[in-house]
Design a protein around this nucleic acid. Structure first.
Length: 460
RNA sequence: UCCCCAGUAGCUCAGUUGGCAGAGCAAGUGGCUGUUAACCACUAGGUCCGCGGUUCGAGUCCGUGCUGGGGAGCCA
């Protein structure tokens, strides 16, 4: 008989006979003559309370069931006479699929996030991480739904790349050469003998691929893993993370800001709607202000101001910042958080940054000093979206690449898009994990990705 | 990579001035007629992160290494 998921069973509007559930025992409470089993199957936060009577043939075995054991229960769904749950399952058969020995590391009480990271393979069996990864799954779906409704097409940008893209961060090198016996040429490794005949890396961004496709298919997006080999040891960085990168043809920076704002509001509303029970756990135990923050994002118009105005506000703030504020200097975490958390108290979009702190592909403004860039800042996270209008004019792009010492030969294909039917276009990148942190109130990025990759840590 | 903090039972943590290694939960045994992170009693459980030093005596003080965390930079 096919198992029914606890999520669906708990939504039943009437008693049901002959149902089968399969899952893991969260806790067992024995009474004289019968036992209560709390079963969780991962389909939802709630457990199914199972009543196992001593009249069951294998009751002596049932009494030995431990936390973490896997069971299949056949029985009748009945109204529960006890308080705390509407339904319970009166067992007719309890099949013990496997008993977890007493070394099972999860206790019924709360564990620290630090400890759970050391058993990342078991943490989805806890309430918090089960809820988190259900939200992660729903959020992925919501991203596709948003773009589909907007007429965007999904592009699979490559994971292996020959270019280093915007020079964003350190690269993970990819090779099929024998690292213990590297072929040498002029004292260096000879990658002409490697699989691709040249150096290859894991991608740091799908943007350049997305641009090529936007200039063919109109509106597109990528959503996939990206890799940075930076030795970052913070609660906001991992070496492998997922990024969403939309790219729109025939659009300018204002369109880009509008899309970013609409996108964040859609996703936040979607999760509040689709993940009520799971989100409630985070509002209750992780961040008491979570719902206020999320509702604030949905209901407010994001403040839009130029980088120049932002610097003026910071200058006049009277705050004692650790880092200097001034035109031409990048905004630091503390500056971004001051703007969104204290000064405006809502999401903020900063645009028109000085060109010297931004990459080569951003469109130069008429002042020849700033570029058409925009960052969206949200409370608690800081920068959650970074984007720009791209430089579509071939001569300006080449000049800028020369200035910055970027090889035009290597990017011949990128420049081709500006030779043949170039058009204004723009896009942005959103760190998927950072969005999850914002939506759940979780403060460490290692806790919103199934198996985090950080310096010195790739055991799982 | 830099600055700061921490490491005691399977887990969460206490351990006073340097003087017998502790509690709750988990585990085991027994009890309890409907429990809700059940409850009650009992049992068992320790390389006090590693190495070195000071001392009559170190979980406690000093040095060093490792691991984890917080903050910063880099960035998403």
């Amino acid at each position: 008989m096919k198992r029914i998921r606890i999520l669906h069973l708990l939504k039943s509007d009437r008693p049901k006979d002959n149902v089968v559930i399969k899952g893991w025992v969260r806790t067992k409470r024995d009474s004289r003559g019968f036992s209560f089993l709390e079963i969780n199957d991962g389909s939802c936060l709630k457990n199914m309370q199972v009543i196992a009577d001593s009249s069951l043939a294998n009751y002596e075995e049932i009494k030995k069931i431990t936390t973490g054991s896997a069971v299949a229960v056949t029985g009748s769904l009945m109204e529960s006479p006890g308080k705390g749950q509407q339904w319970e399952l009166k067992a007719e058969k309890v099949e013990i699929l496997s008993i977890a020995p007493d070394t099972f590391p999860l206790q019924k009480k709360r564990h620290s996030d630090e400890f759970l990271r050391t058993i990342a393979h078991l943490r989805p069996r806890t309430n918090k991480y089960g809820a988190l990864f259900r939200i992660r799954s729903e959020l992925s779906l919501a991203i596709h739904k948003f773009f589909r409704e907007k007429g965007f097409q999904y592009i699979h940008s490559p994971v292996l790349t020959g270019s280093d893209c915007e020079g964003a961060g350190e690269l993970f090198k990819v090779t099929a050469l024998d690292l213990n016996n590297l072929p040498q040429k002029d004292g260096k490794a000879d990658f002409s003998l490697d699989f691709f005949g040249m150096e290859a890396n894991l991608t740091v961004s799908g943007q350049l691929s997305a641009e090529m496709f936007a200039l063919a298919m109109g509106d597109v997006y990528t959503f996939g893993p990206t890799f940075r080999a930076e030795n970052s040891n913070t609660s906001r960085h991992v070496a492998e993370f997922w990024m969403v990168e939309p790219e729109m043809a025939f659009s300018d920076l204002a369109d880009n800001m509008n899309l970013g704002e609409e996108f964040l509001k859609y996703l936040t509303g979607y999760i509040m709607d689709a993940c009520g029970d799971d989100l409630e756990l985070f509002a209750k135990y992780v961040d008491k202000n979570l719902m206020t923050t999320l509702e604030g994002l949905i209901s407010s118009d994001f403040t839009r101001l130029s980088y120049k105005e932002a610097v003026e506000i910071l200058d006049k703030s009277g705050q004692n910042f650790e880092f200097e504020v001034g035109f031409g200097l990048d905004l630091q975490s503390e500056h971004e958080r001051y703007l969104t958390e204290h000064y405006f108290k809502k999401p903020v979009i900063v645009y028109d940054y000085p060109k010297n702190i931004k990459p080569f592909y951003m469109r130069i403004n008429d002042d020849n000093i700033t570029v058409a860039a925009m960052d969206i800042l949200v409370p608690r996270i800081g920068e959650i979206i970074g984007g720009s209008q791209r430089e579509e004019r071939l001569d300006k792009l080449e000049t800028r690449m020369d200035e910055m010492g970027i090889s035009k030969e290597q990017y011949w294909w990128y420049l081709d898009s500006r030779r043949y039917g170039t058009a204004p276009h723009c896009g942005f990148g959103l760190g998927f994990e950072r969005l999850l942190m914002f939506l759940t109130g979780v403060i460490n990025i290692r806790d919103v990705i199934p198996f985090p990759r950080t310096p010195n840590s790739i055991s799982f």
